[in-house]
């Protein structure tokens, strides 16, 4: 399908197994759609990294590196925003309990925890977590067009 005929409202989906070798596939998928959406390369790179961090967190924390679980990645677009929704069926967590790291103090004490989440927040406009009791967790990564 050529870029110009792609229906902008059509949801674009990718399903991967929860293993780190899938990350390259996720990055390629998101990169292509963000470029098609019209973002410049720098913005595309930021979105791709934010999604990589979200996926890595799911593999590490929700699925504890069990490699045969499913992660669904869905790109949703409208004229104003580009959204990537990641869904997993693993262990929920409350993002409020993950303290926003004081970067200076984290780095001085070699603390790695929370850096991925901090990076995500720094790279895109909005990161929304929806963790529920039915073991269906979603993270939405949003970047506005302007």
């Amino acid at each position: 399908m050529s870029k110009s005929t792609k229906n902008i409202s059509k949801p674009l989906k990718l399903k991967i197994y929860s293993k780190t070798e899938s990350l390259v596939e996720v990055r390629n998928f998101v990169s292509e759609e963000a470029l098609n959406f019209g973002f410049d390369e720098e913005t595309v790179n930021k979105i791709v990294l934010a999604v990589d961090e979200a996926c890595t967190n799911i593999i590490e924390h929700a699925y504890k590196y069990v490699p045969d679980k499913i992660i669904e990645i869905e790109v949703r677009l409208n004229s104003e925003k580009f959204e990537v929704k990641l869904t997993d069926y693993g262990i929920s967590f409350d993002p409020r309990v993950v303290k926003t790291p004081n970067i200076k103090s984290s780095i001085m004490k070699y603390r790695k925890g929370g850096l991925g989440m901090y990076l995500m927040k720094s790279l895109v406009d909005k990161v929304e977590y929806n963790m529920n009791q039915n073991r269906r967790n979603t993270v939405r990564i949003i970047k506005y067009k302007n």
Binding site: R27, L49, I107, Y110, K112, L115, L119
Partner: peptide, 16 residues
């Protein structure tokens, strides 16, 4: 060409 926080974490693990 690319680095995520997992890569940066490796440097943090060894610098001390």
């Amino acid at each position: 060409s690319y680095i995520s926080s997992a890569g940066l974490g490796v440097f943090m693990a060894y610098i001390e």
